[in-house]
Amino acid sequence: MTDIANNNADYRLVYWPIPGRGEFIRLCLEHAGARWVDTPGGVDEVMGYVEGRAELGDDSPQPLFPPILRDEKEGVVLAQTAAILSYLAPKLGLDGEGAAAQAHVLQHALTGLDLNDEAHNTHHPIAAMLYYEDQKTEALRYAEVFRRERIPKFLNYLETNLARNTASNHTCLVGSSRTYADYVWWQVVDGLLFAFPKRMQTVLASYPHIKNFHQHIKADERIAAYLASERRLPYSDGVFRHYAELDAE
Rank of each mutant, 00 (worst) to 15 (best):
residue 100 A to W: 06
residue 187 Q to W: 00
residue 119 A to C: 14
residue 86 S to A: 13
residue 242 H to R: 15
residue 204 L to F: 03
residue 94 L to I: 08
residue 240 F to M: 05
residue 205 A to I: 07
residue 98 G to H: 07
residue 181 A to P: 01
residue 21 R to I: 04
residue 191 G to F: 06
residue 40 P to M: 03
residue 213 F to D: 11
residue 66 P to W: 01
residue 57 G to N: 04
residue 57 G to Y: 11
residue 42 G to Y: 03
residue 220 D to N: 11
residue 3 D to T: 15
residue 61 P to C: 05
residue 187 Q to A: 14
residue 59 D to V: 13
residue 54 A to L: 03
residue 116 N to E: 10
residue 56 L to I: 14
residue 187 Q to L: 05
residue 57 G to V: 13
residue 93 G to N: 09
residue 215 Q to A: 14
residue 236 S to F: 10
residue 223 I to D: 04
residue 158 L to F: 04
residue 175 G to I: 06
residue 142 Y to D: 09
residue 76 V to W: 04
residue 41 G to V: 09
residue 105 V to E: 01
residue 159 E to I: 09
residue 15 Y to A: 12
residue 50 V to M: 13
residue 101 A to H: 01
residue 126 I to T: 12
residue 98 G to I: 05
residue 24 F to I: 10
residue 82 A to M: 15
residue 188 V to K: 00
residue 101 A to N: 11
residue 132 Y to D: 04
residue 207 Y to M: 13
residue 200 M to D: 04
residue 23 E to N: 00
residue 54 A to K: 01
residue 223 I to S: 08
residue 239 V to I: 15
residue 169 N to M: 09
residue 19 P to Q: 06
residue 34 A to C: 03
residue 50 V to C: 07
residue 165 N to R: 07
residue 98 G to C: 08
residue 2 T to H: 10
residue 150 R to K: 15
residue 146 F to P: 13
residue 3 D to S: 15
residue 178 R to F: 05
residue 217 I to R: 00
residue 25 I to N: 02
residue 134 D to W: 01
residue 39 T to Q: 12
residue 237 D to K: 07
residue 210 I to F: 01
residue 181 A to Q: 02
residue 122 T to C: 15
residue 29 L to H: 07
residue 54 A to M: 01
residue 15 Y to F: 14
residue 79 A to Q: 12
residue 214 H to S: 14
residue 89 A to P: 09
residue 216 H to T: 15
residue 196 F to M: 09
residue 163 A to C: 02
residue 12 R to P: 10
residue 71 D to S: 07
residue 156 N to I: 02
residue 101 A to Y: 03
residue 155 L to W: 02
residue 181 A to M: 02
residue 7 N to Y: 10
residue 125 P to T: 12
residue 8 N to E: 14
residue 136 K to G: 02
residue 34 A to E: 02
residue 188 V to F: 04
residue 229 S to T: 10
residue 186 W to F: 15
residue 106 L to G: 05
residue 60 S to D: 04
residue 247 D to M: 14
residue 3 D to W: 12
residue 18 I to L: 14
residue 186 W to C: 03
residue 26 R to S: 11
residue 128 A to C: 02
residue 34 A to P: 00
residue 180 Y to N: 00
residue 159 E to G: 06
residue 24 F to S: 04
residue 152 P to N: 08
residue 115 L to V: 06
residue 236 S to K: 12
residue 79 A to E: 12
residue 42 G to C: 08
residue 64 L to D: 11
residue 203 V to G: 07
residue 234 P to A: 01
residue 43 V to Y: 08
residue 238 G to C: 09
residue 37 V to T: 11
residue 126 I to E: 07
residue 27 L to E: 00
residue 196 F to N: 13
residue 33 G to K: 11
residue 115 L to I: 09
residue 249 E to N: 15
residue 150 R to A: 07
residue 32 A to N: 07
residue 1 M to Q: 13
residue 111 T to N: 08
residue 16 W to I: 06
residue 206 S to Q: 14
residue 82 A to Q: 15
residue 31 H to E: 15
residue 152 P to Y: 01
residue 27 L to V: 11
residue 158 L to W: 01
residue 82 A to T: 15
residue 100 A to P: 00
residue 79 A to M: 06
residue 12 R to W: 11
residue 82 A to L: 14
residue 162 L to I: 13
residue 230 E to D: 14
residue 107 Q to I: 05
residue 114 D to R: 00
residue 114 D to H: 00
residue 51 E to K: 13
residue 27 L to H: 11
residue 92 L to N: 04
residue 171 T to Q: 13
residue 198 K to E: 06
residue 43 V to L: 12
residue 1 M to E: 10
residue 106 L to P: 00
residue 27 L to P: 14
